[in-house]
Design a protein around this nucleic acid. Structure first.
Lengths: 127, 127
DNA sequence: GACATCTGATTACGCATGTAGTAATACGTA
DNA sequence: TACGTATTACTACATGCGTAATCAGATGTC
């Protein structure tokens, strides 16, 4: 029964702050984003409001303002975004996607090693 | 000077047809999509028109109608889409993305083998 | 040649998104 | 207590997107 929540690019940036801090006021979020984005503080508040309407954030009264916190788990949203990207661009074929990123992405030798191990695990699961 | 062209989900489906056939009339595209999508033919024509406006398709007169063909390479669009997805969801960290998909995706043993080889190549490039 | 049909051009329309502005209210400070 | 300030609520507005409809001209068909 898990409703599908679409989180836009700009909203995602806000969610990242909340996923990291777990709990914050609008002012906190605005402060965190000041380094990263040139958004007007009203813009950030609008994004927060929309995220609450969408059910991605939860607003609890805290004094005369709200404390916001995520109402959806990050990993779930990541899976959902990943899935729709996979379907749009690689026709649902994860192997093609992996080939693409292995080819075009910058990866360190350590990361390559890590991936190799993951592939091993994956293979043993299959057996 | 390569302009950034945004191709929406629905438009991408149309582009796939043109990338495959290389050259087609609107009627051809509509026919190809009939199996896959329930779109009204007017919808498909609208999408084609928008793609021409965006510069993603090229329309050449062919008799009393147009023949359309891609004006942008698929691999370039794939890279662009991949890059923005990577940045949105994995903060630009390709290794994290790869870990995610290796973990969550269905991959056959053959594909795992293929990826292993690609990692080998990648590693030797690094040296 | 008359009429149905195909095509492209133009228009529509509601919802999402990026990016705020304004109004109302509560608070803290001089 | 008066006033500037923070906060939320509501409103705005252009653009993009999904999904067509309408209009006008070219074509094929009987």
């Amino acid at each position: 029964m898990s409703r599908l929540i679409q989180i836009s690019d700009a909203e995602w940036v806000v969610m990242e702050v909340l996923w990291r801090s777990g709990n914050a006021t609008a002012a906190d979020v605005i402060a965190h984003l000041a380094d990263v984005k040139t958004w007007n503080h009203r813009t950030v508040r609008s994004l927060i409001t929309r995220l609450v309407e969408k059910g991605a954030l939860e607003a609890r009264p805290a004094g005369h303002r709200y404390a916001y916190r995520p109402a959806v788990r990050r990993d779930k949203c990541v899976r959902q975004e990943s899935q729709s990207f996979l379907e749009k661009v690689f026709a649902g074929d994860a192997a093609k996607l992996l080939v693409h990123f292995v080819r075009h992405a910058k990866i360190t030798p350590q990361e390559i090693e890590r991936l190799r191990k993951l592939l091993d695990e994956k293979q043993s699961e299959n057996e």
